[in-house]
Write a protein that binds this DNA or RNA. Structure first.
Lengths: 193, 193
DNA sequence: TCCTTTACATGACGAACATCATATTATATG
DNA sequence: CATATAATATGATGTTCGTCATGTAAAGGA
């Protein structure tokens, strides 16, 4: 049937939103096109009038989610509260328990490393920009030092979040997050190398 | 047909070895039972006379790979060279380029977080033991402090290794590893919090 | 030497996968 | 009001998935 003007754009956005969540929650590989479309309230056939392939959807999801994340960090940075609340939020129990809304670096790094270079390029481009933004809000040190510190900070936070998610015991998982917060905050406020 | 004594044990071990490599290289989900058996020089049907299900194989792979890794760290620690060479090796280009022989924490953390609790327990048990071992070889600080520092160190190294693997540009990837080495070494030698 | 057992091979099951061709139907356009 | 069109639905393609039932042949025990 035919729908009103702009309907297709809305549908396309809905597919993207659903994919952005499910890819992070269940993994790119484990999410099928049919299930994705069903979650968007549609049937599987229409998918290919929106995206030429699943891989193209993956790229667009990566792009938008990483962009959204970057914008969110920019807003936090602009608030003038420094980087501490960003770290606290990143390593919170809530972020651990809601991967579907969480950091795409933590969710996608391993899986994206196995995709085509064209897909990985998107990841890297946004990653570099994100590091620059973090570095710009770190105190002390040369620009190069702060960039390296920002890289390590993101790696530490992402790695620790993953370990906390893998741990079934809530207590142990909480301890991992606590260790992460302590060291991430220390790394953020002082160059220790 | 019937084979000599001990043949089945050898076959089983071969399947485990192949799975240990392919799971790390391509991801657990992306590796099928049939392909696994083919890589081991067998056909798919016999798989279930060795393992009750793919998930059980995953558990056994996790167990043996994590155990192997732990033993390797024990050997390095016993050599008396300190933890620095361990860090250098972990964050080397070689380790980045050979995930099939590399750290299971980095390869499996995200994917295992989505598996059944029984599978995740294996991951966690070995993780805690590994942290204790690292902590025992860190200088300075209380036992609790060293444990937290060891946890953060493992998270930092694992997270950075993943980011380096996801980055298609060799130069950028090398830079990530360099940043990681610098901060991991600093974290290892001095309590900075 | 015969015969049972064992280790694997072959083949099949239904389900889910990505992808595409075609049908349907309400809306926009004339 | 008629009709072309756009946005989905339906259905089918061939593959691959995990799992299991059955076939086969050689080694071990009698």
């Amino acid at each position: 049937m035919r729908y009103g003007k702009g309907h297709k754009d809305e549908t396309r956005k809905r597919i993207l939103d659903v994919a952005a969540k499910r890819f992070r929650k269940d993994g790119v590989d484990a999410v099928g096109v049919a299930g994705l479309m069903a979650d968007a309230g549609l049937t599987h056939g229409g998918f290919y009038s929106h995206f030429p392939s699943k891989e193209h959807l993956v790229r667009e999801v990566l792009d938008t989610v990483l962009e959204t994340r970057h914008a969110s960090l920019e807003r936090s940075a602009a608030s003038g509260n420094g980087i501490e609340p960003v770290i606290e939020r990143y390593l919170s129990e809530r972020h651990r328990d809601e991967p579907e809304n969480g950091c795409p670096f933590a969710c996608f790094a391993v899986e994206i490393a196995r995709h085509e270079p064209e897909t990985r390029e998107i990841f890297t481009a946004k990653f570099n920009r994100h590091v620059e933004l973090i570095a710009a809000h770190l105190p002390e040190g040369s620009e190069e030092q702060r960039r390296q510190r920002a890289t390590a900070l993101l790696g530490l936070m992402s790695g620790m979040l993953q370990l906390a998610r893998a741990t079934p015991s809530p207590e142990t998982s909480d301890e991992i997050l606590a260790s992460a917060r302590q060291h991430a905050l220390a790394m953020a406020v002082a160059p220790y190398a």
